[in-house]
Design a binder for these strands. Structure first.
Lengths: 199, 199
DNA sequence: TACACATGACTGACTAGTCAGTTATAAGGA
DNA sequence: TCCTTATAACTGACTAGTCAGTCATGTGTA
């Protein structure tokens, strides 16, 4: 047993939280390690006991970015209800989680700027996209097989749905006063489902 | 007659072009004024003859960002064809312009990271969004009035279409191998139009 | 004492912006 | 045609400031 209890995980979490706040406010490049230290009520030296560099903190944030959300949604896979109902549940789940997301959205878009130059970032976003499709595509396919939805290309439809979600959030970021996230996500999905359902 | 011709506009253009290239490659913060100078075949001092600061160059890029695209699309306003046809033309126009856009997409997303902290950026994106809606909403409304489209909320529908476009581009940025921009923009619009058209 | 944990003053690499000096071009006179 | 002069255009070494990362020095607990 060490002379002090191991606080490593606790500190890492503490630093990660502070970094999220500061990076959201200032962006990755303008944020200083001293800012993060202050926000975390630690000294700069201490940050370096738990992360080897500023980039290491950023990479840690990247890895955590989609984790919780995806884990939650995976549960849908085992849900026994019909496809159209699951799609509704999926929509509701995303919408109800939006407020939790809001905090990390500035960081998401911060990462987008790096997407073109950093393969680590590319990989993370790709992975997120693929796990989203692995979830949604079979669900659409199931609906087409049972006749709930019109026959068509399930993969393409899944992409359209994903685009609608990401796009609505993006427009909301452009102008939060003009876009009511909940309302417009619902309206968009409604319109899409109308096109998807059998005539 | 002055001893030398005025090259001011030409130089500004030259610097803007170089800055676009460098900012795309490195991002706003990592790009150095020396990089831009080198790319433009000028010295750093010369950059400061035409722009008062690095931020001034960035702001100039921001103001040019949506200009050409929006000017082009405004032409649709006076087009006499039926709404659904105009919507198709709109889609085709966007799709055919995508390759021209590709060059500035990294910069667009670079700006997105700043959207949350810089009101100049917020204003520019808001303005773009509003001029998009001023164009599309009346078009949808027209289609609803003539009976081409199902009755509904034209504004909401315009937002859904905009979201679909922006979202598809976003997903394509996530994984250009998975998303075929042309194909999936078409597929998405098709699905949406199916929902939009009268039963 | 021994060890984990914590600190913050310090260093050195980096870069936006400046400015004293240089160069290229056109006009006008011989 | 050649030379002088005016000045717009340009240059790059330099300054002043910033900040990631280091390290010598505590401090509290078993």
């Amino acid at each position: 047993m060490s002379p002090k209890p191991n606080v490593s995980e606790e500190r890492k979490e503490q630093i990660t939280e502070a970094a999220t706040t500061i990076f959201s406010q200032k962006g990755f490049d303008k944020a200083r390690m001293d800012d993060i230290a202050k926000e975390a009520n630690l000294s700069k030296g201490t940050l370096y006991l738990y992360f080897k560099s500023k980039d290491a903190i950023i990479e840690h944030l990247l890895n955590r970015l989609f984790e919780r959300e995806m884990a939650d949604l995976q549960l849908l896979k085992e849900d026994p209800r019909p496809a159209s109902e699951k799609l509704t549940i999926f929509t509701e789940k995303i919408i109800s989680d939006i407020h939790g997301w809001a905090r990390v959205i500035p960081i998401m878009y911060e990462f987008l700027g790096r997407l073109f130059r950093q393969s680590v970032v590319q990989k993370a976003f790709k992975k997120y996209l693929h796990s989203y499709f692995d979830l949604i595509t079979p669900l659409i396919q199931e609906g087409m097989d049972t006749g709930e939805f019109k026959a068509g290309n399930a993969g393409e439809t899944a992409i359209t749905i994903g685009a609608l979600f990401e796009g609505t959030i993006l427009l909301w970021v452009y102008d939060p006063e003009m876009i009511d996230l909940e309302k417009h996500l619902h309206a968009g999905m409604k319109l899409l489902m109308d096109g998807l359902k059998k005539d």
